[in-house]
Nucleic acid binder design. Structure first.
Lengths: 340, 340
DNA sequence: TGTTAACACGAAACCGTTTTCGTGATTTTT
DNA sequence: AAAAATCACGAAAACGGTTTCGTGTTAACA
């Protein structure tokens, strides 16, 4: 890379001290107009830009926020990133994005690297493997180092930090209630393994809605998907039962379920209703389009980053972690058009 | 944030100089075993981590790569990010991600901020507005500052830097040829405005395939989508003509076209074929699933970052820009099952 | 005319680390 | 026993800025 122009260069070239240059560039009253003009003209001519590393070192802050996501090729997470970035830019921050790829080891490593001073704070959604392990030491260490941290979506209560989540129980309830209202009686649930807490919470909502209608939850109608083996096969399994609707905790499962239903000759939404989670493009463009729970990823991201920046910039010693719950809502589409 | 432990702290605490601490932590032979043990033990105990800002300043490199994308909630771009990140991590780099949101102003601003020393190099896909403006000064400035830059997908030849693109002409050709081979005669093209060069290139491939079959390109079969107004309406327009197939330059347009075709009572793929670009989830999960040109975003990202890092680390003064062309291939699905 | 204030600038410390070059104290060599 | 080599460590500069605190010169005031 070309030799960059620095304050020193300018100082030497113009026969003044670095302090004078620094002050002149900040339009300090200490410096005479002529000197300022001369220095500023020179700086402009040679396109001087203050070296941000030097400033970061001096100010002891980077104006960078680290973001660690389990994955990115995913509508929800990419929407969240959008929100985080927008919120960050508004406050003069930038984001450094890393992925854990759902791996515990990579999450630990990334957290370690980012917490060595390269970022002012972190926004994280926990990797699946970590949730399974239940080993959160890398997070609690971060907290005890007092590095600002905000967890979102996939959070755990043991980690004492700010959190942003969707109202998963409520969402599960709304989704199931909607199916019941449409007259469905035997509703399958396609969810994640228990360690993924969002899945568990959505399941609670599902069960709550059923109980209210005096329907006993039937274990055979519930399938916990193991992403390491054939997802489609596992979903097909539930179709061995007699069912008239399905609530899936994400849109991939929902799309798969609908496809299977159609292949089995079921007419969606006439004979069979489908409802998913994450209001992504699949739900919008599949046919029939799929009713979903909208997660408001953008809002989540924005709230998370605002929370974090507040935490970073507030020097208050006493600090009680906040938890923001974003309410989700139903996005009605063709897959649950009332069966006449 | 808690007061971080530094080399100075250790030095003072242990009554040695900072140089000794620094050397001891690097296991230098200059330091006696006892002193090293003592210092290392202390560092471990208090969980000392070298401040990365100080290192970056001293080494004059950040090991960070800036990435500027037009958008992220998009299958292709998020796949590219994955590739970039993986390649970066492998070489000990991290990525700083920003979005231009297709805006010229934000692109200029972001480029300026990132080129002040916070990154060692940049990977960019140009914003639509910039392509329309044809104002690339912010890029050429970067090049003349000799800041390593790699452009991908949306590139322009005037900027002298490394580039990674897909074989858009070839891809357009393959897609159109495939439709022709399926016996389609009146093939609509749904593309972008002319300033988006990838659209223009794909169109060239389309025209080339038609010419080979002695079919004259019919302007009425081509629609250039303006994203600022109703996309669906614009696509519908082309259905006023008699057509038996459509080639769309991205999957959203393809999905829309297929939906309209179905609404018009056309049977896909029996009466009508659809082929898209970007092998995303929509194409996979819509019904019928949509044949696409796979863009290999992951590969593009990885190649781009490898090119960039090579450029960053090679101190060779003479440097001739490279252009890597990634060949795309057809992913056959239901929307173009041969009409019997 | 002597004192004080305002002005315009520079010296030096600081942020946290690395690294070159001394240097005094041992140990080895002759 | 004197010279040379080795050892174990420290001082200081450097990376590129900012900022506090002088300080010499000039202008204003009594």
């Amino acid at each position: 890379m070309k030799q960059k122009i620095t304050i020193k260069t300018i100082a030497k070239e113009l026969g003044v001290s670095t302090s004078t240059v620094s002050k002149a560039l900040k339009d300090s009253h200490e410096i005479s107009k002529e000197t300022k003009d001369k220095i500023q003209a020179y700086a402009n001519l040679y396109n001087y830009k203050p070296n941000s590393l030097a400033l970061q070192l001096r100010n002891q802050k980077t104006k960078v926020i680290g973001v660690i996501l389990p994955k990115i090729v995913h509508h929800f997470f990419s929407t969240v990133i959008m929100g985080i970035e927008e919120g960050a830019i508004e406050k003069g921050y930038h984001i450094m994005v890393c992925f854990s790829n759902e791996s515990y080891a990579k999450e630990v490593e990334t957290l370690k690297v980012l917490s060595n001073g390269s970022v002012d704070g972190l926004i994280v959604s926990i990797a699946n493997e970590t949730l399974k392990n239940k080993d959160f030491k890398h997070f609690t260490d971060l907290v005890s180092e007092e590095i600002p941290l905000v967890l979102f979506d996939r959070v755990v209560d043991d980690i004492l930090c700010d959190k942003v989540v969707v109202d998963d129980v409520g969402a599960g309830y709304k989704a199931t209630k909607h199916l019941l209202d449409n007259g469905r009686k035997r509703i399958a649930l396609i969810t994640t393994p228990k360690h993924v807490n969002v899945g568990t919470l959505r399941r609670q909502g599902y069960e709550k809605a059923l109980i209210e209608e005096y329907i006993k939850t039937d274990k055979n109608l519930i399938v916990e998907i193991d992403e390491n083996s054939d997802v489609r096969k596992q979903i097909e399994f539930v179709f061995n039962q007699e069912i008239d609707g399905v609530f899936a905790v994400n849109e991939i499962y929902a799309a798969n379920a609908m496809r299977i239903a159609k292949e089995k000759g079921l007419n969606v939404p006439k004979d069979f209703s489908v409802i998913g989670f994450t209001d992504g493009l699949i739900s919008e463009y599949s046919s029939p389009s799929i009713t979903t729970i909208a997660q408001h990823g953008f809002t989540m991201g924005k709230q998370a980053v605002e929370l974090l920046i507040e935490r970073i910039e507030k020097e208050t010693e006493v600090y009680s972690p906040k938890k923001i719950v974003i309410s989700s809502n139903l996005k009605l589409r063709e897959s649950t058009k009332p069966s006449s």
